[in-house]
Design a protein around this nucleic acid. Structure first.
Lengths: 207, 207
DNA sequence: CCTACCGATCGGTAGG
DNA sequence: CCTACCGATCGGTAGG
């Protein structure tokens, strides 16, 4: 018997209704969870297989290799951020408005898919070449575009004369705790969270 | 022949002048570097041994196990942060002054020992019990004391009515990019960096 | 501090 | 999708 080639998540979910998840999607989600909790290297294909009720060897009908699972997680999330950036860039809006939307984007994407954003953020260094270089290029592109928006705001006098590079990294990091923390007894709503974080970063702490 | 029991870094460096480093210190520093670059799991004892010009088995004359190397890195850094906290707490100063000093502490400790702070921040989850629980207890203690200072500032009207938990995590994270970035062509001085980051967090971005 | 070695586990393949 | 299996590598020990 022959088995079909692995499909991408997008292809695979195309033929199903929203409620049922393909085996490939189940593997993808279990992998994101395990990579977040234990790290990529500490997650074995046997761990992953057990999580979805298969034997390790059967995983290879869905993904060509372990590193390809990671690659798909990283690429998908890079795309999500880049699409959000694109939507913000085309707006006819002030730099303040754009930066606000970008911070909201980071918060929203993080809360929407906590596990996969964490894996994307922390485990990309285990990508193999040439995928590592391709990923870093996407990231660099995103960072540059982010910094351009900051620069515009500084030039127009909307922002303080900050170093765009430092500000961008500070903002990226400032929402990175969300996926470590925002999972169990979340006593606070996404909207409140956005309001708090935006307030801190845009207006500062001091009264 | 017998070999002496492993000494802690503090003991080991006591008998030497400042310039020469004990083998144990060399192993410790190489481990911090490898853990940061490749991660704990991806670093083998053979990698580590090669880095200091030994065979893997010889490492066990200095550390009882691989996980003990990580434990020492994590514990040492937790101590550094807790000592800094202690110094800030005993000050007769405003909450603004204390929070400023804490942010400076994070920046200074990060720049002082970039690799070991990174390993401490990113690899602690690979600690084995009971050391994992002990570490998390230290961290929880630090976080609580940090949040208490914020709460005091909110109560006294120095700070905006922020959620202390959210603010503390935002501040912790906001300086976490330093060790990923601040190593090679650092075109900016530590003092400038402090000024920029403090400005962003205390006064906000908007002019 | 080394050589030699151990059992366990890894990612992945063959073959059906 | 499974069983069976491979070579490589792992953390760690024995013994000197």
């Amino acid at each position: 018997m022959t088995y079909p080639r692995p499909l991408s998540i997008v292809e695979a979910s195309g033929g199903f209704s929203a409620v049922e998840k393909s085996k490939k999607e189940q593997i993808y989600e279990a992998a994101a969870r395990l990579f977040r909790d234990k790290g990529y290297q500490a997650t074995s294909m046997r761990d992953l297989a057990k999580e979805v009720g298969l034997r390790a060897s059967s995983l290879y009908n869905h993904f060509p290799s372990k590193s390809d699972v990671l690659r798909e997680i990283c690429t998908n999330n890079a795309q999500r951020f880049l699409e959000g950036m694109q939507e913000v860039e085309v707006l006819d809006a002030s730099a303040t408005e754009k930066l606000t939307r970008l911070i909201r984007l980071h918060i929203r994407l993080s809360l929407e898919d906590v596990t996969s954003v964490t894996a994307f953020n922390d485990e990309w260094r285990h990508l193999e070449e040439p995928h590592l270089s391709a990923f870093l290029k996407l990231r660099k592109d995103y960072e540059s575009r982010f910094q351009t928006i900051i620069q515009t705001g500084v030039a127009s006098g909307e922002f303080k004369p900050v170093n765009p590079l430092i500000l961008s990294y500070t903002l990226f990091s400032a929402v990175r705790w969300l996926y470590d923390w925002y999972k169990p007894g979340k006593k606070i709503s996404a909207a409140e969270l956005e309001q708090e974080v935006l307030g801190i970063l845009m207006e500062g702490v001091k009264l």
